[in-house]
């Protein structure tokens, strides 16, 4: 049986009818219509479905939607500023050529955000650990690591809010 729940996604409250077994990825993609969150494996292995739950990266394909009530959910769509400006991590990914097919990108950027929110100048190893759960098959990761490092530097220098 479906029940109506409230989910806070990117600062907005959505009232959504869900069944207890509905997964967050499906609710976000199909019921809310935020398709930036990707589903690459449905088993918690690839990281494409990563979203932030109270700032922590979680795999939305193995997270029940009802368990997210009362928490702040951030999807990739929530990173762009009101005026359309890209988040420094998004900007850095574009500039560094860290995007190819783009399917891992939303999850990769959200994992990066969780990392940089805690530590704006991580070491290379810390960056690699931060995205170890996000598979990218196109780029070979090198440019992603560079993009995250550069975004951290930008954030640390306070050039952007």
């Amino acid at each position: 049986m479906k029940q109506l729940i409230e989910l806070e996604i990117n600062g907005r409250i959505y009232e959504i009818p869900v069944s207890p077994k509905d997964l967050l990825v499906d609710v976000v993609r199909k019921k809310v219509g935020l398709t930036g969150t990707k589903k690459g494996c449905g088993q918690g292995d690839c990281g494409a479905c990563t979203v932030l739950l109270d700032g922590e990266p979680v795999l939305s394909c193995i997270t029940l939607a009802i368990a997210c009530q009362g928490k702040k959910i951030t999807t990739i769509e929530g990173l762009v500023a009101e005026d359309g400006t890209l988040h420094p991590i998004q900007q850095s990914f574009v500039e560094h050529g860290a995007v190819q097919c783009g399917f891992c990108t939303p999850g990769m950027i959200l994992s990066s955000k969780a990392l940089l929110d805690k530590n704006q100048q991580p070491t290379e190893l810390e960056i690699k650990r931060g995205i170890a759960g996000n598979i990218c098959r196109c780029t070979g990761y090198k440019r992603i690591v560079e993009a995250i490092k550069a975004a951290g530097d930008t954030l640390a220098s306070g050039e952007v809010k």
């Binding site: 930036g36 769509e77 990914f93 574009v94 783009g102 990108t105 950027i109």
Partner: peptide
């Protein structure tokens, strides 16, 4: 296509 991809669009 970089910007659309990083925005999830």
């Amino acid at each position: 296509d970089g910007p659309a991809k990083v925005k999830g669009e």
